[in-house]
């Protein structure tokens, strides 16, 4: 099972919206994954295979061992599905 994080500044709102849409995109493409939303400081010390986040937050996650995937529009399912297909093994 793949471990996926969605990350925003506070871990409360934005990352939860992204979690819902990333979960949907993963499920629609047949991936089994555990998706969790969190804030930037917690994410830095968490293990994960993939991190979905905004451009701005990604700058602070460069050192993370997970593959960091940038989503520009959190409400654009086409962008999110494309990002899943291109990046998730």
């Amino acid at each position: 099972m793949k471990k996926v994080l969605t990350v925003c500044g506070l871990g409360q709102g934005t990352s939860l919206i992204l979690k819902m849409n990333v979960e949907q995109a993963l499920a629609d493409n047949g991936y089994q994954a555990d998706v969790e939303n969190t804030d930037l400081s917690a994410a830095s010390s968490m293990n994960a295979d993939y991190i979905f986040t905004s451009n701005e937050i990604a700058e602070s996650l460069k050192e993370h061992t997970a593959k960091v995937i940038i989503i520009n529009s959190f409400f654009d399912m086409e962008e999110i599905i494309e990002a899943v297909q291109q990046n998730v093994d």
Binding site: C8, G9, L10, G13, T14, I17, L40, T53, S54, E56, I57, N72, S73, F74, F75, D76
Partner: peptide, 13 residues
């Protein structure tokens, strides 16, 4: 934390 909550074009949360 900056403007990361501008979630998609034209929309902020």
């Amino acid at each position: 934390n900056g403007s990361y909550f501008v979630l998609s074009p034209k929309i902020a949360l």
